[in-house]
């Protein structure tokens, strides 16, 4: 080897810098977008959420303002023009002359709000009880986990039906039922990861510093239990949307004044057999797309956040 080549080689070695360490969030985001289906799911979900949030401003009509409905337009198939305004009903109308496109956007809003609020409450209750069970152990643990086991031994739909049959229908009551059905999943998830973390040295160190139980539980223990929680949350949100739709379809969910997608489907169900398929088919497609979008995102997150599958 000549001297020149040797020196050139050295220079090349000098060029090698230590690899840049990305923040965990960036690493997860980069891994997430490697999967095309997951991107499709994310984009789809963002579209659905945007439509739901902006429903009052982007829909052709307010489907629950009776002054805007024209009975002459009742039961029109998709693509027909309105007798009253001359506008086009892209997804048809129901028998009251309500534009299905607008009704779906409003229904989506209610479905997502119900699922979102119940997620917030269920995750808060579940996380607090799950962390407490893992941190304190012993009696507290077995008491909380007994309740969780007891509840999970019954199908979620049965428990929700029991509650709603006794309480009556209403948006607040559906949210209450969803929270009661779902907190146990979060509690179980958080507990199982917290019970592993609790034995690690940093928790011991925090205890030696004399920090309060609350501070250790929520500032030290909880942040290390978040990844599995996110995965369970995406699955559970999709479940919550489906469960709410089912309950509303059965007539025990949201009231008729605030129709979610499930109730729209139920309203159109009576006309399905007479050939007016669009009244229940299109709300159903909206519901299904929402659920699939969330599941696609959740599936990818599960792979990305699973430490065993990380390179």
């Amino acid at each position: 080897m000549s001297d020149d080549a040797f020196i050139a080689g050295l220079e090349r070695v000098d060029d090698v810098r230590p690899p840049k360490v990305d923040s965990p969030l960036k690493r997860i985001a980069l891994a997430f977008i490697e999967d095309k289906l997951a991107i499709v799911g994310l984009v789809l979900f963002l579209c659905v959420a945007t439509v739901a949030i902006l429903a009052p401003w982007i829909t052709p009509q307010n489907p629950y303002d009776l002054a805007q409905l024209d009975i002459m337009d009742g039961g029109l198939p998709p693509g027909e023009t309105s007798f009253a305004t001359g506008g086009t009903y892209w997804l048809g109308t129901d028998l009251q002359g309500r534009d299905m496109l607008s009704a779906i956007a409003y229904g989506l809003r209610i479905s997502l709000v119900v699922a979102g609020i119940s997620l917030g409450f269920a995750i808060t209750i579940g996380v607090m009880l799950g962390v407490a069970a893992a941190y304190f152990g012993g009696r507290v643990d077995s008491f909380i986990m007994r309740i969780v086991d007891l509840q999970l031994s019954f199908p979620a739909i049965l428990i929700a039906l029991i509650l709603l049959a006794l309480l009556g229908r209403g948006v607040d009551k559906v949210i209450l039922a969803l929270v009661i059905v779902q907190w146990a999943y979060y509690a179980r998830t958080v507990r199982s990861s917290a019970i592993v973390e609790r034995r690690k040295d940093y928790i011991e160190a925090a205890r030696c510093l004399g920090l309060s139980h609350r501070r250790i539980m929520f500032r030290h223990l909880l942040p290390n239990c978040v990844p599995p929680l996110i995965v369970v949350a995406t699955v559970q949100v999709a479940q919550a949307i489906a469960l709410e739709a089912t309950l509303s379809f059965l007539g025990v969910g949201v009231p008729i004044t605030e129709p979610s997608l499930g109730l729209l489907i139920a309203n159109g169900y009576d006309y399905l057999l007479s050939g007016r398929y669009w009244i229940s088919l299109f709300p159903g497609i909206a519901l299904v797309l929402t659920i699939i979008a969330i599941n696609l995102v959740g599936d990818r997150l599960r792979d990305v956040l699973n430490p065993r599958l990380q390179k």
Binding site: A242, I265, L272
Partner: peptide, 22 residues
């Protein structure tokens, strides 16, 4: 199978009716 358990049960039933009965 993913569709089978992520789609609501009543919706699957309605599709069955729409296709096989209607």
């Amino acid at each position: 199978s993913i569709l089978g358990f992520s789609l609501p049960n009543f919706w699957q039933g309605m599709l069955l009716i729409l296709v096989f009965a209607v």
